[in-house]
Nucleic acid binder design. Structure first.
Lengths: 337, 337
DNA sequence: ATGAAAGCGCTAACAT
DNA sequence: ATGTTAGCGCTTTCAT
């Protein structure tokens, strides 16, 4: 039987209100009084009961994080960042797996909403209309998604894609392929947008392959289509797909980067573990998770209308590893002529 | 403002007690009455407030899962399994990252204990003494760890290791290396134990390298020591280490499996993604997560003393992929003689 | 089978 | 600066 506020009050010789204040608004109680309260609490091992507190304040001290797939390494760093930031503010975090399904995600939001003060929705699979309808209860912050009226953290993946294309162009590539991600994915549209813009700037021709599911297997399946496209470089929707391509290429005896340069996206740990290590666009995932919780906590404090500060855009940056090089045609000029 | 039990009672024309009973002990209220209550609740979108319920029942409807490292792919499947099982029983799950630190883990347990009915402790880094002291509040279930008095789910990794060694022996290997995991890790001891037993059975000589941290980088660092050991096969503590070895080997121009066979442990998704794909001991991770929650929920219901059913041992199984083959000496008999 | 009423542990007016 | 007291929404005796 854990100690209650009454036990502490009795031991310290004060009222329960004073005990409560000593913890929630310490500045209004006299130093000596507070110290005796704290001492009594420590002696009894007292910890305020969150349920009781929540009953009256209407707050739970919890936040929820919903990701489309717990198995996707991309979200682990997000989770870790979110976790760390939340714990620093003494919030606990509920994690749930939406299983890449919009309806499951909606069910999760409903189930969660009574038990959390706010939710971070990562790469939501929900339709824009549904998302906009969420607005109120509880507070929601979007990650990797932009919808009017909702605070969100996004990564400048269009710019990341530009960096990747410029890298390829500077290497001498003039024709590349893009293995596209899920058609309705916001991230995919952003990446594609950056790609088209950069291709124009660099005068690179790009053929699109897909869309495919953002998984390893998709890359395995797409590899031969890339080969048939007659390109010297391929940009994949994400690292998982890129590694799938790498894997199939190795099987086929196509050497990377000599015969084909491969670029990924996300910079998940896996990217550095394969051979050759993957050149990829690094996304500040842990930072993003942290920023999302930060935003959420901020909106929980001052519940005014959304402001400009409710949109956080994080930079992406290209990480050059071993899977890209100049195309064969450039390094060994054609003997003809 | 969400509907409360009073609103439902008023609408259904009954007392709050009847509403409460309609949900918690439906069999004691008349069918017609209950139906009108249910209808009223549905109309109002009523959902019992968990905090209020918890205040009186002393239960939260939450469980916690603590893992040493959210970044370790091994735990994702565990998490996913735990999640799914918990949700089916209408429990929400808190997830926390112990950061591979015993003290952090202890802090987490304390912070969590007031908000959950039970905790699943995965591959706990806590000393046995600390673990035994946990016994009571709240209910704890261990995963990948065995301590007297605590319910636990373990995987038969000793047997998995045996399968791996027998596989190697049948291929013709007579001398192998084991890259050992963290010295005090329970899992490492189990694996080592299985290894020694099997090595004796198969008459294989095994040298131990390490211990090393269970990470990719450790494998990278260990690769050359493996080479120096003059073996034809290496068993790594886990897949991450094995893939690190693979990566360094590729850099050094050592071909796998021709010059060296490599075996991992865990069968994380990564194992199938590298080239050559990793032969490894598959652990039923999702199942383990599920079983742990199952056990926890079971103990929450009938709070008797621990029984034999409180220990669940899951089988491991070898998955043979491309990183193992007969040693060169066997395929191409030495010309001498 | 149902209702009335007493709290669970805490915070927030309102008093003093 | 501190104490008194009224609930927060719910479950659970105890009556009826």
């Amino acid at each position: 039987m854990p100690a209650s506020i009454h036990d502490v009050a009795a031991l310290a010789g004060v009222s329960v209100a004073t005990v409560s204040r000593s913890f929630t608004i310490p500045e209004v109680v006299r130093d000596v009084t507070r110290q005796s309260v704290v001492a009594a609490a420590a002696e009894l091992g007292y910890q305020p009961n969150r349920a009781a507190r929540g009953l009256i304040t209407g707050r739970t001290g919890n936040i929820g994080v919903i990701v489309p797939d717990l198995g996707n390494p991309y979200f682990h760093a997000v989770l870790k960042g979110a976790q760390a930031r939340a714990r620093r503010a003494d919030y606990a975090v509920f994690v749930a797996d939406g299983q890449e399904s919009a309806s499951e995600e909606e069910a999760l939001i409903n189930a969660m909403s009574k038990q959390v003060d706010g939710i971070v929705l990562c790469s939501s699979r929900l339709a824009p209309g549904k998302l906009a309808a969420l607005e109120a209860t509880p507070t929601v912050v979007l990650l990797n998604r932009r919808v009017a009226g909702l605070p969100s953290v996004i990564v400048d993946s269009a710019d990341g894609m530009k960096q990747a294309v410029h890298h390829l162009a500077s290497l001498g590539h003039v024709r590349g392929a893009f293995v596209s991600g899920p058609r309705h994915s916001w991230s995919n549209r952003e990446r594609h947008k950056g790609l088209r813009a950069a291709a124009l700037e660099c005068d690179i021709e790009v053929v699109t392959i897909g869309p495919v599911a953002p998984q390893f297997e998709s890359g395995v399946g797409a590899a031969e289509r890339v080969l048939e496209a007659g390109v010297t470089a391929v940009l994949a929707y994400n690292d998982l797909v890129a590694v799938g391509i790498l894997s199939r290429l190795a099987q086929l005896g196509v050497t990377v980067p000599d015969e084909l340069s491969v670029v990924g996206f996300d910079d998940i740990p896996l990217a550095a573990m394969v051979t050759p290590a993957l050149t990829t666009v690094a996304l500040p995932t842990a930072l993003a998770g942290q920023a999302a919780v930060d935003l959420l906590l901020g909106r929980l404090e001052n519940a005014g209308p959304p402001t400009a500060r409710d949109l956080r855009k994080l930079p992406a940056s290209l990480v050059i590893r071993g899977s890209t090089s100049a195309p064969a045609a450039v390094r060994e000029p054609a003997p003809t002529r």
